[in-house]
């Protein structure tokens, strides 16, 4: 588990506006054979990023030097499909620290929060506007203030409050770890086991 701290992030963005981007697109299954968490960024969006020959696909946004930054602005229903945490490791390993969409798949959302990658949900309208702003001007910057839960597009001044579970917010702000927390509850867990009317 990553003990990653997150407070304020200000960065340019990369826009990938497609809807329903699934975890197989983020990291194809054939790259899941590693037994460590590192290095998955090399294969992030592999089949969009590289041609069959292995050469970079110049048309794909990650290969366009004009665009870059620590914030991935995605399309609606991002991260559906497999539970593979490798998808989040790949995005994080590549250098992104936040993902923005109007709708995330549940497991992807949980995996992101467990790895210090902040998923931010904004409205469909604002997402649409943001994609076109970035495409027109790659220097478009966003400020994310986790403490205040504020998401601000600096050039336009659009600022919205985003939702995050207070427990997860605390974990990210302080770099706390879920497993340390659960381990500290061992007595309660054993107590639960002893009292439980096991339905077996």
């Amino acid at each position: 588990m990553a003990k990653v701290k997150f407070d304020i992030l200000e960065s340019t963005c990369v826009s990938i506006p497609f809807e329903n981007v699934d975890t197989d697109q983020i990291i194809p299954a054939r790259f899941l054979s590693a037994t460590s968490r590192e290095g998955f960024g090399d294969n992030l969006f592999r089949d969009w990023r590289y041609k069959k020959s292995g050469e970079p696909n110049e048309e794909f946004i990650l290969n366009n030097p004009k665009f870059g930054g620590k914030i991935l602005v995605a399309g609606k229903n991002f991260g559906s499909g497999s539970s593979r945490e490798h998808a989040v490791w790949a995005i994080f390993d590549y250098g992104f620290r936040a993902v923005v969409s109007s709708f995330f798949a549940d497991i992807f959302m949980g995996n992101s929060l467990n790895n210090g990658l902040l998923p931010i949900v904004i409205s469909d309208e604002l997402l649409k506007k943001l994609h076109s702003l970035i495409q027109k001007d790659p220097s478009t910057k966003i400020n994310i203030d986790l403490e205040k839960q504020l998401f601000t597009i600096l050039s336009t001044g659009d600022s919205v409050k985003f939702v995050i579970n207070p427990y997860k917010k605390e974990c990210l702000l302080k770099g706390l770890d879920d497993i340390d927390f659960l381990l500290s509850m061992k007595d309660s867990i054993t107590g639960y086991e002893n009292n439980k009317n096991m339905v077996r």
Partner: peptide, 11 residues
């Protein structure tokens, strides 16, 4: 996810 697999193994 795998972080949660670790949680279950641990606790």
């Amino acid at each position: 996810g795998t972080s949660e697999v670790e949680m279950v193994l641990a606790t």
